[in-house]
């Protein structure tokens, strides 16, 4: 049973999320609140497995709620529910520790699928966000397209994966970079898995690592700068 906490100020959406989750017996909504303050209180009180949070809360930003959850309840997976899934919001959430995001207009099916993906590994990454992440990690995205077929390139990446240098906690491995590159070209996880010769499940776990790295990555300028050196060597 996955225990879910909903923090959403719009009553209609709150009800909708609860209704969708109620359809799947694997989920249990432990609380559904309308403010960040209440959300943080419930985090401590109910210790949910999953936090669904809206960013535009009346009292404090949803980002703060995510940060609080990351700090006090590391086992809890945070998930942002956004209107447009735009990069600014999504990246800010990931940096605060969120593992993924859902769109408010997602169908019931997609909504549940999103939460399931989140628990299994990581949320899908949109090409634009993948691109932003590559930039954020100072990975050179303007490398000329390789003349090698993607499969072959994946093979090269394989050997480089272990050779990932720098602080592996925050530097992108070449495998992770490969994933972001493919994601930025519009490939989904199964396609990436096929291209790289790994299972879709492995892809999602890599994505989850990327998310984690971004969160760590953005903790401070000093860390950021220190890593940059490592990242450059990684490339």
């Amino acid at each position: 049973m996955t225990r879910v906490l909903i923090v959403e100020d719009d009553v209609a959406f709150r009800r909708r999320y609860a209704a969708i989750l109620a359809r799947d017996p694997a989920f249990e909504v432990v609380a559904s609140v309308g403010t960040g303050g209440e959300g943080m209180a419930m985090l401590e009180l109910r210790k949910p497995d999953v936090l669904l949070v809206d960013l535009g809360l009346p009292d404090i930003s949803g980002i703060s709620v995510i940060q609080h959850a990351t700090k006090t309840l590391p086992t809890c997976e945070s998930m942002v529910v956004t209107v447009f899934g735009d990069e600014e919001h999504v990246l800010a959430s990931i940096e605060a520790g969120a593992s993924g995001y859902l769109l408010k207009d997602a169908s019931e099916e997609n909504f549940l699928e999103g939460i399931r993906e989140l628990i299994a590994g990581g949320s899908p990454i949109s090409p634009i966000i993948a691109r932003r992440l590559l930039k954020r990690f100072h990975a050179d995205i303007d490398v000329p397209p390789s003349i090698l077929p993607l499969e072959r390139r994946a093979g090269v990446a394989e050997t480089e994966a272990d050779a990932a240098v720098g602080d592996s906690e925050i530097a992108l491995s070449s495998r992770e970079r490969e994933i972001l590159l493919l994601a930025s070209k519009g490939f989904n996880y199964p396609e990436m898995g096929k291209l790289m010769g790994i299972s879709p499940h492995t892809v999602t776990s890599h994505v989850k690592k990327i998310y984690r790295k971004l969160a760590v990555h953005s903790r401070g300028e000093a860390v950021f700068e220190a890593n940059r050196m490592g990242l450059i060597r990684t490339l």
Partner: peptide, 25 residues
Amino acid sequence: LEPVERDLLVVLGNLRYRLEPRLNA
């Protein structure tokens, strides 16, 4: 409005990403 720096694939990929739920449906 996202600056994609002339990369058409990102643009198309993102469209795919947006449309995929509806195609799936």
